[in-house]
Amino acid sequence: MAKTEGFFELQDIRKEYALRRGLLQRLRGGAPRVAAVDGVSLSIERGAIFGLVGESGCGKSTLAQIIVRLIEPTAGKVVYRGADVARLKAEEQRTFRHAVQMVFQDTGSSLNPRKRIRRVLAEALAARSVTGAAAEGEIASLMHQVGLDAMLLRRFPHELSGGQRQRVGIARALAMKPEVLVADEPVSALDVSLQGQIINLLSDLNRELGLTIILISHDLAVVARVCTQIAVMNAGKIVERGAPRQVLFHPTDPYTRMLIASVPRGLAGRSRRQGLGPAAVDGAAAPEDERQAAAD
């Protein structure tokens, strides 16, 4: 296990979905298929914070679900610690499940509305066969680890703020003692002022626990700041990858350039807009129209 490369690898992952069409077409077997993930290969080093950037519909969430094995890829291999996870034995499957956890976008559905926070964490620990007094102690230390007051254990999810709910989501994942944490848009539902708190928490966990983090976001600025490696995804493919500075300041792919150009930049953006007029924006209108045309 000394080798750090090959810790977590995706090899030529594809995920296809059949488009729903009429009954006749389905019977003929000719239902067209669309690839949400179209041949993605990635290698993630142990202890890295790996950033995956892309916009909605680019396949990044599908990829996240493949990484944690909520769905199986149509083709390709997920390799964890040198073993193909599709061929693990039952006992190893369980270990993999616990080792690779996920933090979801806080849309209000990431916590069961009928369960108090204590129960959410207790159930996670119970899945690891930690119960009773040991569980109580661990719940307390989990809450401390994510910076939440133990008072909140008695609350229901709707009685917490978005940032607090997201911390509970992280605590729930940590309860499984994971090695890899996939965070799918963990801050996009939060206020700008709170985003940093969650991102910093993830980055602290990376440093203190050696947790490998795969941070998925549409926000290039956030990802570039904390990640050691980033990859940009568009239409199911990785279009650019590298160190954050390199991607940010020397992008080679036109899509990456457009993504960078779209980030609001305050007064600078204002003068840019006023200087160039609406024409500058019209130039950027192309991709959505293409997507729109593709949806027809």
Binding site: V192, Q195, A221, V222, R225, V226, P244, V263, G266
Partner: peptide, 15 residues
């Protein structure tokens, strides 16, 4: 706090 595309690394500023 606004995440910006600059050369900064390290913890994000927060309130």
């Amino acid at each position: 706090c606004i995440p910006r595309l600059d050369a900064d690394t390290g913890p994000m500023p927060t309130i």
